[in-house]
Amino acid sequence: MDFGMSSDTENKLQACLEIGKTLIATFKIQEILELIMTKISQLIPAHNWSLLLEDEATGELRFEIAVGIDKSEVKDIRIRPGEGIAGTVFSSGKPIFIPDVRKDGRFNHKVDQETGFVTRSIYCVPVQAKDRVLGVIEIINVNDVDSFEDRYLSILTILSDYVAIAVENSQLFAQVERLSITDEYTGHYNARFLHQNLKRFIAEANRSREGLTVAFVDIDDFKTIVDTHGHLAAGQVLKEVAGTIASRLSQKDVLIKYGGDEYVLIFRDKGRTEAVRQMDSIAQSIKESRYLISETPDLTLTASFGMAVYPEDAETEKDLLILADNAMFAAKRARKKARFRRE
């Protein structure tokens, strides 16, 4: 059926429909962004098209998608808020169109100097979600400077909104994922993370031929802490003990709050001897630290440890966890027997 639309309008509508369906169908942010930028490049004649997003760690802009240029040439470039056209749009949240960059002092030659490209004109629009600017879209050396705004501003605005929706959805999804594998008391990984990733850690150990040790840690007499100080204070103890343990771990080691007053440690590059040495260091640090220092009196603690080594002790995730857990309970029973004899 002919609705009297021009082919240009029909192409724009078709692009919006396709992007809308993709937004609903997937949370794969890279796939969505690449589709949007490809559609922009097809609808808006120019030399190259780029999407820059905020690096949340630094607050700077980085190139996320580059169409028409080699991304490897720009992947390490960072643009500060307020720097050049992209930085200015990012800071202000307002689009900028420069038909001739030679006549505008805001233009920054950094990218041209890094890539050897020659920018003549630039149109830059913010990628904005509510009052927050997430990044910018740049269109460089447009073919039709004179009629660019009249013909393409509306579709570019719509597509930049799609980018904002995709980025915001991705960030929300990532936040939910992080919460699902994070322990609410300590802020460290939880049991869900362990069961999702232990198989991967074993595969890494097989490839690297380095050691892999799983250790359980249990705070001794934790029920007494709960009974004496209450659940809120006990939760604070769990957090403080996690901090003590974490301070003794290497970058590759993984700390998991497993359940109750138990922690699991994954030593990803350590065999039995190294793991025992590190657990001794952790145990001594727990013993020497003081907890709930705002309480009178504060607490001193001890902990029981158990471990299993892959593949010497067990070859499956389940068996590693069972053996390490059993070893920890054996150590706890031995500690209680020794204390009873002393008393």
Rank of each mutant, 00 (worst) to 15 (best):
E184M: 03
G259S: 07
H47N: 11
G260I: 02
F329V: 10
D227R: 05
D319Q: 10
V74S: 04
E274L: 14
D2V: 07
T58H: 01
I181S: 05
D76R: 06
D298F: 09
G259P: 10
A334I: 01
F216E: 05
V309P: 12
D76F: 04
E31Q: 15
F97Y: 07
I79W: 00
S180A: 15
L156C: 04
F222D: 14
C16V: 09
H109L: 03
I32R: 12
I202N: 09
A275V: 12
A86V: 00
L198G: 10
V254M: 06
I77C: 00
D325Y: 11
K110F: 04
E64K: 01
H188E: 01
T224K: 14
K332T: 06
A46S: 12
T119S: 01
G135N: 06
K270E: 07
E114L: 02
S41D: 10
L292I: 06
T296Y: 03
D55A: 12
I202P: 08
G59M: 08
F27A: 06
A57G: 08
S247G: 11
D280Y: 08
F201Y: 13
V167K: 03
K71Y: 10
S247T: 05
N108K: 08
E83G: 01
L172C: 00
R200H: 10
L134Y: 06
L320F: 14
I155H: 03
R102L: 04
R290Y: 14
W49I: 01
L61C: 05
A57T: 11
S160P: 13
P95V: 04
T228A: 10
V118C: 02
L292N: 12
K12H: 06
M279E: 05
Q113F: 02
I69F: 00
K71R: 08
C16A: 13
M5G: 04
G135L: 10
S6C: 04
P311R: 08
F107V: 02
N11Q: 11
E56C: 10
Y152K: 00
A314T: 12
M307W: 15
S92M: 09
R192E: 14
Y162G: 00
F173L: 01
E31Y: 14
A164P: 13
K199H: 13
E114S: 01
L17I: 06
E177A: 13
L292F: 02
T296G: 02
Y263V: 00
Q171R: 15
F305V: 10
L43I: 09
Y310W: 13
V127L: 12
W49S: 00
I137T: 11
E54G: 06
L23A: 10
S92E: 11
V118W: 07
F340D: 04
F305P: 07
S247V: 08
S250L: 15
F3W: 11
A275S: 15
E210P: 08
F193V: 08
G20E: 01
P99R: 00
A275M: 14
L249H: 04
R342H: 14
A233F: 13
I225R: 13
S6R: 04
R178W: 12
F340A: 14
